[in-house]
Design a protein around this nucleic acid. Sequence first.
DNA 1: ACGATACTTGACACTGTGTCAAGTAAAAGA
DNA 2: TCTTTTACTTGACACAGTGTCAAGTATCGT
Lengths: 194, 194
Amino acid sequence: MSSKRSETRQKLLQTTVNLLEKGQGKGVRMADIAVAAGVSRQTLYLHFGSRTELLIAATRYHDDQLDVEKRYQKVAETTNASDHLNAFIVFWGEHVPLVYNMAQALWEDADKDGAALAAWNDRMNATKTVCQLAVATIESEGLLSPSWTVETGTDFLFALLSIRNWALLTRTCGWSEVEYINRQQLVARNALFL
Amino acid sequence: MSSKRSETRQKLLQTTVNLLEKGQGKGVRMADIAVAAGVSRQTLYLHFGSRTELLIAATRYHDDQLDVEKRYQKVAETTNASDHLNAFIVFWGEHVPLVYNMAQALWEDADKDGAALAAWNDRMNATKTVCQLAVATIESEGLLSPSWTVETGTDFLFALLSIRNWALLTRTCGWSEVEYINRQQLVARNALFL
DNA sequence: ACGATACTTGACACTGTGTCAAGTAAAAGA
DNA sequence: TCTTTTACTTGACACAGTGTCAAGTATCGT
């Protein structure tokens, strides 16, 4: 009967994901989640110690549903640095919209809560690693512009592709997904190659 | 005797600026400011209706002290698009560190408070206007890469120079002010010109 | 001396997070 | 079948921080 517990846990996570995704992540309270899941507020604290823990668990849960590894395959399968970079930016341009609202909820808490900050940094480091891979590939083919080292080039690409930049360009400036991808490819290529 | 009121007001603003600048903007409470200014908490509400109002007023007060117009002169005095862009990025690279902590305090409230959001957008629009000027100058000399329109090029430059990008590159990645300026100049030039 | 101005004092409402203790209901185990 | 355990509920409360209110004090100008 320990399956009832994990059933409830799953329901809570799913409800949290749903609310965060639709509500733009803004001001989703513990009470809101409890009501939406048809459960008492205290049950949330029984399963997750705090709002931050719930947020982190929900983020992971959501990630698992997205099957990121599989979609990253196309990047991994490329055979040269230029294709790799382009494929990576395509991947990223398609990935961020799926993750944005969850990420936003996390970083809003990162101001106050150390655990949320840690979780946020975790995710950021993961994406920086893939940036690093892309730049290292360019360097290994001798195509990295002498203006950059692998490290600083990675920093730049990481900043260029940051989620907040994505939000600024697509949400605030109104770029479409395709425009975002094409222009970021262009900028990254012009900056890093030669 | 109405000078006493404005004296106090000034003292409150200055104290707020001091606290925000040193404290990384994080968690500066009304009570903290009141104590630091040697005044009761309620006096703050007598002069400014809310935390957000105080924050906005403090930001303006701080801006006035910085004499931005004068430091922007060097940008305005340039005679061609390339110099203009370079001078602008130098200006920006020197400007952001002075403004960062205040800006951070403002945008942290922007999540919750509509007024803070409005104030934040105001500032952002101001900087976007100067970005637009830089890109329009390039275009007017026929040097803007055909990949861009003035509008999209402005969007890009605005994103590249966003305060959050600055924070990511200098604070998180550890770029020095000089490195930031040189590399951002490089990237902007490579992306926009041709 | 009078009254306005500037500020103080202390209490209180409100929101949202997190905690605690006692209670219920139903499945699991003897 | 009776008992224990598990999963959840209920309602109260502490706490932080913002914002409000009413009554009090001190000082300045006239």
